[in-house]
Write a protein that binds this DNA or RNA. Structure first.
Lengths: 129, 129
DNA sequence: CTTGACCTTCCACTGTAGGGGAAGGTGCAC
DNA sequence: GTGCACCTTCCCCTACAGTGGAAGGTCAAG
């Protein structure tokens, strides 16, 4: 099948497919006699796998590593499990950071709600921050 | 004072100061006869304000708006308070998204911990994803 | 007189995941 | 024979907040 059909099947754009190829996530596909890229169901599976992995928040570089292991006939399971664990930690850390930031902003805002705008110190840029 | 001293005082780099100037957060400074940028305490205060506003998670574009209001002699308090409120909503939404993503990843990981690596379906890229 | 620490401008690059659009080739239907 | 949808490569652009480096000017100390 041609790139457009593969794109529709995987629910992405042809631009994205070419980008994935150039980024090393897809092997260079076969070509028809007129030079068009030629894909099969395995290609579409691969594209759908990439989508699922992205759903898990994995970066393309990580997904590329998984696919590369798979292509070299290693079973990537252990690697994937470890990656998911690291992903969980990273998420927990990021969520923690954002919650800390939220607390800071909430504090600023509490000050803001109490402040009288008419009492702003003209020598400061903003008494709220 | 010259740019290096201002940078040290505000705990940033000279590169960053020039970048802020070019981004419209700092007015073009005075110059000494030899062309060096010349700053004073007000400049340093402004730089420190930018830092504080960044601590509150505001983007440079938002900070620039606050500074611009201030420069036009409007009191930016109300604007800032509203911005902080919006910032809180944005943070809450982002935290929610990350928590949803965390749940997804945790689910994938639970599957991973249960799975027997020897039972991987060789026709799939990875049975965990 | 030269060394070193400053400063200037300008241009390019970082990472992420693609998107926009030009210029041209291919194949089918009408 | 021409219009249309599809394909090709190529290069540039997006947001964000800077960072790196080159080429050159300035100034005080030794």
């Amino acid at each position: 099948m041609r790139i457009g059909e593969a794109a529709t099947a995987a629910n992405i754009t042809t631009k994205t497919i070419r980008f994935y190829e150039q980024a090393g996530l897809l092997p260079p596909p076969g070509r028809t006699t007129n030079g068009y890229r030629s894909y099969n169901e395995i290609s579409v599976n691969r594209l759908q796998f990439i989508r699922r992995a992205q759903t898990a928040g994995l970066a393309l570089a990580q997904i590329r590593d998984i696919l590369r292991m798979r292509d070299e006939n290693h079973t990537p399971c252990a690697h994937v499990a470890e990656m998911l664990t690291r992903q969980l930690s990273a998420l927990d850390q990021r969520i923690g950071e954002l919650q800390a930031l939220r607390a800071t902003v909430a504090e600023f805002q509490a000050t803001a709600l109490e402040a009288d705008p008419n009492k702003c110190d003209p020598n400061r840029i903003c008494s709220l921050l």
